[in-house]
Structure formats: C-alpha cells, structure tokens
Design a protein around this nucleic acid. Structure first.
Length: 277
DNA sequence: AAGGCTCCCAACCGCCAGGGG
DNA sequence: CCCCCTGGCGGTTGGGAGCCT
C-alpha cells in the first residue's frame, strides 16, 4: 500500500494561481486564520490541494513578504549563512525578514551557486557546512546536540536575560528596538536551546570579517545594547568588562546576527528558538 | 519575424518529525 | 508502541519571459 496522497488528484487545479484564487485564499485566511490546510480548500471553496494553498500563502500572499530584488547586504548575508548552515533554507530565511526559504533557495540556485560553490578544495570529511557541523559535534564536543533546527522567522535579536542587579532603566535600555517584534528566547537560556561548536574551526572566516571585527572596548552599537563577551573573543580576547563595538556601517539586515546572539565564551553558542536534541 | 535556447522562479513532490488517538 | 494526520522542509520541475541567432 502506497502513501496516501495529500489530496485527491481529480478535480484539483494545478499550476499557477489566478488572481481570484489568491483573493479567495487571502479572504479566507483573513477571516479564519491559517492552519488546517487540508480542510482549507474545501471550506474556502478552492479547487486546490491544501499543501498548495499553504505554499501559496507562505511564499507569496502573506502580508509580511518582502518583494523585489535581493539587496547586496542580503546577498552577503545569504552567502555567509550558507557557508555556515548549508542548504538549510528555512533557517537562512529566518535571518532575512520578509524573505521566504523558497525565494532564497531560488536565488542561491540561480545566482550564487555557480559563483560560490566549487571554488575551494574541500575536506572530504567536511564537504558541507552540515557535514562540518556533524564532524565538529562528533569529535570536539562531549555531547553532540544538533539533529535538526526548527526555523524561526527572524524579527528580533535574541539576547540573554539582563543581569538581575540592573535597574529598571537599565533593563529597559537592554531591550530591543520596538520596531522589531517576534519570537524571543525567554527566561533562562536552557541548554536545550543551545548548540555548541568550536568557533575557531567553523566560524573563523565568518567572524573574521570587517563586520565582526572588534573595534574597541566600549559597546556602542546602534541599539545601545550592552553586550557581553562575544564569540570573536577567541580571535581577539577580552574580559567580561570589555565589550565589543558593532560598526555603524552594519547593514540593518545584519542585526539578525548581532553578536549578542552568538553568546558564549568556551564554545561558540548558536541560539535558535528550538533545537531538538 | 520566428525558432531555439537559457534563465528564472512559482509550484510541485516526496520525505520526515511531531503530536494525538 | 503503532498508526495516522498534519505541517514543514529541501530538491526538482516546468512554464513563461527574455535573449540570441
């Protein structure tokens, strides 16, 4: 017995969506919310597979989708994140607000793959970033934790909780710009949410860029966030009292990779909203 | 002008993980 | 446990647009 198809193939529209189909879907989701994709087409009166409706909504119709060309900053970010994460498009998309995994995947395949792949001789053991991750986690760490990361849409920088001895004003200052809102790691940084791997092995190139060079001892990043020790501490050691400067030229899109996110001293600690051990 | 070719990207497909019964 | 359903992910496809000859 084979896999049950996600929907009946007969009487189902396929291919490009028409304007009126889009409108029906938008209206339905506005009224009832998304989810329950299997039932949605019937309830909404669409002759489409539920999966197709989901895809259309997530990749094209959502109001927060950013359309238009990928900027230079976004492209740089994609390239760096691809080096770091490999073909984990949803994770990469999670760092680019308004961009979808499909869009980034397409952009990579059409514009960047030829440009950036096959340039360097690869270590066969570490032929891809994910392979590197596996290699690192199996070899250098006591307890490998990475299996799969659930992507989150990047709308807010994740910070460790403010030190408890701060005043209210200080804590307020510590918070992130209200322009961005969305998922934030709350409470304690549980080990369940952390994935550790050696920054020097995996990320030295990534971090050793102009954007991530420590430029001083005072934290004067544009959001006024006080930072703790950063991953590039290893590259440019500093004490807990010494913080790092984010260059003013840092593109907005890079805020999703604020070094505060990359928290840790012994190992580079990469935070995602959810890691499944 | 027209036919062939290439590129782009929306859409599809199969697989997988998690949750609930 | 096992099975089924659902949502999510990454790889692939194919139609249309644009370019070239």
């Amino acid at each position: 017995m084979g896999r049950r198809p996600c929907c009946a193939k007969e009487g189902i529209n396929r291919g490009s969506w028409s304007v009126w189909e889009d409108q029906i879907l938008i209206n339905y989701i506005k009224a009832h919310g998304d989810g329950k994709w299997r039932d949605l087409p019937q309830k909404a009166g669409l002759k489409r597979c539920g999966k197709s409706c989901r895809l259309r909504w997530l990749n094209y119709l959502r109001p927060d989708i950013k359309r238009g060309n990928i900027s230079v900053e976004e492209e740089e970010l994609i390239v760096r994140l691809h080096k770091l994460l490999g073909n984990r498009w949803s994770l990469i998309a999670g760092r680019l607000p308004g961009r979808t995994d499909n869009e980034i995947k397409n952009y990579w395949n059409t514009n960047l793959r030829k440009k950036f792949q096959g340039k360097s001789k690869k270590n066969p053991k570490c032929s891809s970033p994910s392979a590197q991750l596996k290699h690192l986690t199996s070899g250098t760490l006591q307890k490998p934790q990475v299996i799969r990361a659930k992507a989150v849409r990047c709308t807010k920088v994740i910070l460790p909780p403010p030190p408890s001895n701060r005043s209210n004003d200080e804590i307020k200052k510590y918070d992130i710009d209200e322009r961005t809102s969305g998922p934030q790691l709350e409470g304690n940084l549980s080990a369940d949410f952390l994935v550790n791997f050696d920054v020097n092995d995996l990320l030295s190139e990534f971090l050793n860029t102009d954007l991530f060079q420590a430029a001083g001892n005072e934290c004067n990043n544009e959001k006024g966030i006080e930072c703790g020790p950063h991953p590039h501490d290893k590259l440019s050691p500093c004490s807990e009292q010494q913080n790092c400067t984010i260059p003013a030229s840092m593109p907005e899109s890079w805020s999703s990779l604020h070094p505060c996110q990359l928290w840790g001293s012994e190992n580079f600690t990469f935070l995602e909203e959810e890691w499944l051990a």
